[in-house]
Amino acid sequence: MIAFVLVRLFRAVVTVLAVMTFAFVVLRMSGDPAQVLMGPDVPQNVVDAFRAEWGLDAPLWQQYISYFREILSGDFGLSMRDRSPAIELVLERVPATLQLTIPALLLKLCIGIPAGIYAALHRDSAIDRGVIFLAILGFTIPSFVMGLVLVLIFAVTLHALPSGGIGTWQHALLPAITMSIGGIGILARFSRSAMIEVMGQPYIRTASAKGVRWHDVVRGHALPNAAVPIVTIVGFMVGSVISGAVVVETIFSWPGIGRLLIVSVANRDLAVVQCILLLIAAVMVVSNLVVDLLYGWLDPRLRAQPAH
């Protein structure tokens, strides 16, 4: 069990390091913050002074080493725009993003999984076909299209809900729904196929053959087995509570992490972008770690053999 956890932890750390390195290199290779921030007409000596101030004149590998040294000492750098600590700028946006992503996640779980399981248990019925159709529709329509359609219907035509901005819970409704629809479709399809697969297993027939009532077969024997693959997808969705909002925040002018990321990338605000990517990677990795541990809990076959 300890080896199991250590291996996963090691993999998690390696993943975060890889993301950080990638972000660091790509950001620096793909554009010059001095140019972006000050425009093309600034005299060379001003640009050089800016470069020297932010350490951009050193060789890439030196920048990289000092970046890591600072991160390890808890210093995530300053924003080039207003010189406030990048970490503060980022964390300040987290609640707004979570206000969208957490309700969206709950919608995905509470609609997607039951719909998929119901469809699987009533295979080939009209409801099953309806669920499949809506699910495919849900995850094939891109979220910006879905968002615009919803805005057209509920904000522009019906005037029932605001079309953008943050404020009351009504403001969060359209973006959260927009964000959840694709995930509902994916989860419904996935839960359905997981459940169909499990219901066809010999142990389900065994349970029926020993007289277990049908809904207890479903609850006590099928669901615990179907949970294993479903948890994988759910883990992935939990992992993207920070990163999953970029498109939707932009459509609905929602002041969350996603918008900050877009603005900061455009401005080459290195410290802020790196900080956001680090946060995204950390959340993903932690949720993967939790999923791995959940696997072991849900499926005894995946547990490392305890010493007898």
Partner: peptide, 20 residues
């Protein structure tokens, strides 16, 4: 089922629920 007529199957390893 199981009370008056019980049934056992061919592949015992997959006939028992793996997570219970």
């Amino acid at each position: 089922r199981g009370g008056r007529i019980a049934m056992i199957f061919q592949d015992p390893s997959s006939a028992l629920n793996p997570v219970l």
